[in-house]
Computed example of a mutant assay.
Amino acid sequence: MSTNLVELNRREPKPTMILRLLAEVQAGKAVSVSIADALEFRREQYGLTQSEFAAILGLQKGHYSEIVNGKRKLPIGATKRAYALGVPADVLLQPDV
């Protein structure tokens, strides 16, 4: 079963995501986290607004919003910055399926 990039980047409610991740970890299944969820998680950890986080990634807020909503891909420069901020490489380097 293949999952495409749009499905991976679709946001799910945080409580649902937590329950899903717990179930996957308990089952020993590899956890798949979307780029959008990983970016938003890291942004929230730093206590930054979307505008502030977008600027750090070298993006306009609107561009960042489109990435989080699965409408655009994360540019390579922003990918490098996101990695430097602690977003895991395996999440950032998901294949476009």
Rank of each mutant, 00 (worst) to 15 (best):
K29T: 05
H63C: 01
E12C: 00
I67S: 07
E40P: 00
S34R: 00
G77E: 14
R20A: 12
L21I: 15
A84V: 03
A27E: 11
D96Y: 09
A78T: 10
A55M: 09
I56H: 11
Q45P: 01
P88Y: 06
E24R: 12
V31F: 05
K14Y: 04
T3N: 02
K71S: 08
T16M: 10
L39A: 01
I56E: 15
Q45N: 11
K29R: 14
P13K: 03
M17G: 00
Q50A: 11
P75N: 08
E12W: 01
L57G: 14
K71G: 10
N4Q: 04
L19M: 15
L92T: 09
E12L: 07
L22G: 10
N9I: 13
H63S: 08
G86P: 09
G86T: 08
E12T: 06
P15A: 07
V91C: 02
P15G: 03
Q94H: 13
L93C: 13
L39E: 01
G86I: 05
S65G: 06
S34G: 15
L85T: 05
R11D: 01
L57R: 09
I18E: 08
Y46M: 11
V31S: 03
R42V: 15
P13T: 01
L5M: 08
E52M: 11
R20Q: 13
F41L: 06
K14N: 00
I18D: 07
A78Q: 09
S65P: 00
G28C: 06
T3E: 08
S51C: 02
I67V: 15
G62E: 13
D90N: 12
G70N: 12
V68I: 13
G28R: 05
S65D: 08
V91L: 01
V33C: 01
A82I: 10
F41H: 06
L92A: 06
T3Y: 01
R81V: 14
G47A: 06
S65K: 04
G47T: 07
A23R: 15
P95F: 05
A36Y: 02
L85S: 05
E7M: 04
T16N: 08
A84T: 10
V31T: 11
G62I: 09
T3Q: 04
A54D: 11
Y83I: 12
V68D: 00
P13R: 03
R11M: 00
G62W: 09
G47F: 06
V87W: 09
L93S: 10
K14G: 00
S65C: 05
G58N: 15
I76H: 11
Q94G: 02
S2F: 05
R81Q: 15
